[in-house]
Amino acid sequence: METLEKDLSRDDQFQARIDADVRIEPKDWMPDAYRKTLIRQISQHAHSEIVGMLPEGNWITRAPSLKRKAILLAKVQDEAGHGLYLYSAAETLGASRDQMLADLHSGKAKYSSIFNYPTLSWADMGCVGWLVDGAAILNQVPLCRTSYGPYARAMVRVCKEESFHQRQGFEIMQTLCAGAPVQKEMAQEALNRWWWPTLMMFGPKDSESPNTEQSMKWRIKRFTNDELRQKFVDMMVPQAEFLGLTVPDEKAQWNEARQAYDFGEVDWNEFWSVVKGNGLCNHDRLQARVQAHEEGAWVLEAALAHAAKRAAREAVAA
């Protein structure tokens, strides 16, 4: 009984700190549910960064110029870095790196469904940077002020690097749209495929998102899914117009009264189907991850053995 009362007041104290915008640090007391929710959220985010390297990695060897190749390589390397910042943030909560990776590889842990779509043409590299990284930025910027210190700091680092990602993507689109008619068609065709999946990146509708309220209270989420989706559409429709492209949604119209764009309904059946593993690339992505992990396992083991051997030699010499 006594511990229960103590815990209750601890919960209240904890919430008071969050309400006062005091950051929570790794060794501070926190409710179990806060810790678990964060581990899930941060590791899912980390997995998304790592799996997100695959659709773009697909084009590194086929980039149209050395300049584009160097840029794409740098971007994909950044995504690896983002995954690492985030995995280490999750580790400060007591999660183990091996366990997180095992959960990704077994399919128990999720990653962003957007990476289960294929990258079919060079214009997809434009759309991924412009739209997918654009959506990621909208999600991530508010998280720079999230209540958990290591997560917030990781997000600051990530956000600094993301704007280059978006700009290089937009530049690819701009170049294609200023090119020959076939290039512009390629850009439009890519936009047609990526538009709806990027709108899905913000997650289910608020009415279908039962955890949002608690997450907002803990400040590990700072805007609702629908708020972010609206912001995204408001940003992107004019950018598409600038490029001379059309978003594939007849309902995407400026609403003077709302001072915002109206837009059509996302195909939620498709959304849930991809989340459940039935997207075009779910199988390939996971298999590529597991294969890389297994084929690289000997390097992990050899490096450890080498370090142990050297430490032993140094101990003898000393």
Binding site: S88, E91, S96, R97, D98, L101, A102, H105, S106, G107, K108, L286, Q287, V290, Q291, H293, E294, A297, L300, E301, A303, L304
Partner: peptide, 18 residues
Amino acid sequence: TNWGPNNKSIMSQSEWPL
């Protein structure tokens, strides 16, 4: 394929120090 949750090579990995 053999890449499910029971795959030994995934589970028995020893982590590099932090």
